[in-house]
Write a protein that binds this DNA or RNA. Structure first.
Length: 377
DNA sequence: TAATCCCGCCATTGT
DNA sequence: ACAATGGCGGGATTA
């Protein structure tokens, strides 16, 4: 029975990784400096919950910072090197894998340079209470929650790669190692689930890539991080114009999986809360709908929709027709340029180009200063 | 079947 | 009290 007509639910189109890619190329353009969660959710066509996931991991890597309620500040890719550097230092300092017990308590978790301290203040600050004295382990019961946060898990996961020598880790191992947090015990079934989420978004940014353990054949992830780029050489910069195009919006969403639905059985109770607003209006987001910034773009887009993988979907679908390149994929840059060609979809091509460009600029930024160089605070 | 991981309920925390 | 955040894990989807 059933009546699916042409669209079947496809989990991959709703993955966090893809969502992350969309998020990135939606906000990674000049003019953007602040991001509203509601706006993001609407434009990307996903529920708020998912935005929290994305934002949390992106913040862990320095791309964003929370500014206020419902609002994040876009720092950009250029903030990554610094963040990773600090993450690395922190990791070495406290953690030290292999451990011996656990990461010494957990004190400072956040990183980021943070702006300088307020210069203002001429003197005694006022402020209310300054109870924090820092001594006394204040293992606040409250912060217990943060111990398990996605953000922290992300940072620890990254630290693991940054500090440890092993460069191929399976999520199970990672979960086990990262279990050092306060007396957690037991199986971390949940933790692994979270790790999958994290791995997906990190993969979409190409920080890591999925592979297989040579021996075990078991799936594992390899750190790509900011691979040093030897000389630019490849990648022709700015090939075409098209700096900020984006008229097409690729939303995930189309055919939901939904939970309670029209089940042919079961007592459907009255009262099912279900979602208050299921109207997933996804289909095509307006091309013009938009908001601040006068981004007027004629948007020639021919109605895109199928589109199956973002420019950075993990694992390149070998669907490519005529491609002659090694499967090893050592460098993204070369691969990227090799790929650029055929894309029947104009919009997709533009989008891809844009991303490549952004990535490039980020790389050059990184290239200027070695990643392994302590930055003077 | 095992590996992956989306979805959204609902506990927390913020205002 | 209500709104914003975000653990958590059931179970659908994929490999």
């Amino acid at each position: 029975m059933d009546m699916e007509a042409g669209s079947a639910y496809c989990r991959k189109q709703k993955s966090l990784g893809l969502l992350c890619s969309n998020f990135l190329n939606l906000y990674n353009r000049e003019g953007v400096d602040t991001i509203g969660l509601d706006d993001a959710a609407t434009r990307l066509g996903v529920e708020r919950r998912r935005i929290y996931d994305i934002v949390n991991v992106l913040e862990s890597v320095g791309i964003l910072t929370r500014k206020a309620k419902n609002r994040y500040t876009w720092k950009g890719f250029s903030a990554i090197p610094q963040a990773l550097q600090e993450l690395k230092e922190e990791g070495i300092r406290e953690n030290i894998l292999s451990n011996g017990g656990n990461i010494s308590g957990k004190l400072s978790d956040d990183e980021d340079d943070d702006s300088s301290s307020n210069p203002n203040s001429s003197s005694q600050n006022d402020n209310k209470s300054s109870s924090s004295v820092l001594p006394k382990f204040s293992a606040s019961r409250a912060d217990n929650r943060k111990e398990k946060s996605l953000a922290l898990l992300t940072q620890n996961f990254v630290k693991l790669f940054l500090c440890s020598k092993m460069e191929m880790i399976s999520l199970d191992e990672a979960a086990k190692i990262l279990l050092k947090s306060v007396g957690e015990s037991q199986p971390n079934r949940t933790k692994v689930r979270r790790l999958y989420d994290i791995a997906n978004v990190l993969s979409s940014m190409k920080f890591i890539e999925k592979t297989h353990h040579p021996e075990t054949r078991k799936p594992a992830f390899r750190w790509l991080g900011l691979k040093d780029r030897p000389d630019s050489a490849s990648v022709a910069p700015v090939k075409e114009s098209k700096k900020r195009v984006f008229g097409t919006d690729l939303t995930n969403s189309s055919t939901k999986r939904c939970k309670v639905d029209t089940v042919p059985e079961e007592k459907s109770n009255p009262v099912m809360k279900t979602k208050p607003q299921p109207p997933v209006k996804c289909e095509n987001l307006g091309v013009e709908e938009d908001l601040h910034q006068g981004d007027s773009e004629p948007a020639p887009i021919p109605n895109v929709r199928s589109y199956q993988f973002g420019p950075f979907a993990p694992e390149i679908p070998k669907a490519s027709g005529a491609e002659e390149h090694n499967p090893s994929v050592p460098d993204w840059e070369s691969l990227a340029s090799a790929y650029r060609p055929q894309y029947h979809n104009q919009a997709l091509k533009d989008l891809f180009d844009h991303y490549v460009e952004a990535w490039q600029s980020w790389y050059s930024e990184v290239a200027k200063k070695n990643p392994i160089q302590l930055v003077s605070s």
